[in-house]
Nucleic acid binder design. Structure first.
Lengths: 202, 202
DNA sequence: GTTTTTCTGTACCGAAAGGTATGGAACGTC
DNA sequence: GACGTTCCATACCTTTCGGTACAGAAAAAC
């Protein structure tokens, strides 16, 4: 990951690694949010100049989308794995455990999806809409999984699968909010432990 | 609430109502966040000009603090009432019910405290610190209430009061995030219903 | 009615935002 | 080695940001 893939280019090759630059941009967006990340912040962290950024990534918005792709692929991989757990409780364990591990690592605190869901100016609203749409597809996948779990008898009849998905999502979002506010790691762990203590069924 | 309290002023009296202007400013901050609310947004909503705003409220930051005071007094009154519920379950019911009612009303969606907890530029960090400090005092009050509840036998021994507070807070924050993302009211209600279904003890 | 105090409105300030024109340097191709 | 293509760097553009100077208007105090 030091140099990029060499396709038969004419002219001078670029001097920086696109992947490294994108990873640096992701950290900036993750730390400051889309609107809070200025081009100066980005170019300094990426180690490139402003025209280089525009030549390689288009503009700020398309750079953010590429960073969001990277984020989902590298940091949100646990979501896909969680859906394959054998029981609804297993899904919840892996979802919350994955979110917790992410907050305990060396990456920026908080969740890029959550902080991009807040209010924003008119320029950033297409960004917000995209993030919301991606979350909707995760929601749908989780709902299908929990409907199957109910059919499997993983939790009692009187529990509503849709409600359980919304609830689990809310706990995860609250976890991210508190992580971003500087709440201590052991406190974050308590959220997960308590949720699993109260989790219905298997 | 049409004109302000008349203290023995000399000179020309101001032509607008400070309370009404502050209420309008609160709506703008609530909708767009501190940094997202420009002075142009604020003055247009408040119906006053820029120098009038500075004369009456100091600057943008002190205007926000006054709006935050109003928000806590008028919109977060249910928190104090919730602490007086007879059991831990009652506290949770009133807390989540109050948060839900707030999201179902005609006010802006989301929670001013939650949206102010996200990432921000250097100028807004003292704002964020203030919001975090106010939340810490609410957290402490809720923790005392739940420790009492545990002594009262409201929930089982193996449940950690600190964890339960963090957990309840997380659910409330997730509720606000989803409300701000445009999630439908009945979906929000499912979050509350599910949480109370799973609530331990009385 | 004059004075004095305060408010309103316009017009402006410096700084920072996102984005780009331009010129020269560096590489692959022929 | 000359050429053509592409990249890097400086310097600049327009717009918007939070904040203010100044002049004129309006009302209480005398």
């Amino acid at each position: 990951m030091e140099t990029e893939i060499l396709t038969a280019h004419r002219g001078r090759p670029r001097e920086f690694c696109v992947d490294n630059a994108l990873a640096a941009a992701l950290r900036v967006f993750w730390t400051k949010g889309y609107e809070g990340a200025s081009l100066t912040d980005l170019t300094e962290a990426m180690g490139i100049t402003r025209p280089s950024l525009y030549a390689a990534f288009g503009n700020k918005e398309s750079l953010f989308r590429k960073a969001l792709d990277l984020y989902e692929r590298d940091k949100l991989a646990y979501v896909g794995a969680a859906l394959e757990a054998p029981t609804a409780r297993g899904v919840a364990e892996r979802m919350l455990g994955g979110a917790l591990d992410l907050q305990l690592g060396s990456d920026p605190k908080g969740c890029l999806g959550v902080i991009s869901s807040g209010p924003c100016g008119s320029e950033a609203q297409s960004i917000k809409a995209e993030v919301t749409a991606r979350q909707a597809s995760s929601h749908a996948a989780l709902l299908r999984r929990f409907e199957q779990a109910k059919a499997d008898g993983d939790f009692p009849e009187h529990i509503d699968p849709e409600g359980l998905v919304r609830y689990l999502t809310a706990v995860g979002q609250g976890l991210c909010i508190q992580a971003g506010s500087g709440v201590a790691p052991e406190e974050l762990r308590r959220i997960v432990d308590t949720t699993l203590e109260l989790w219905p069924g298997r």
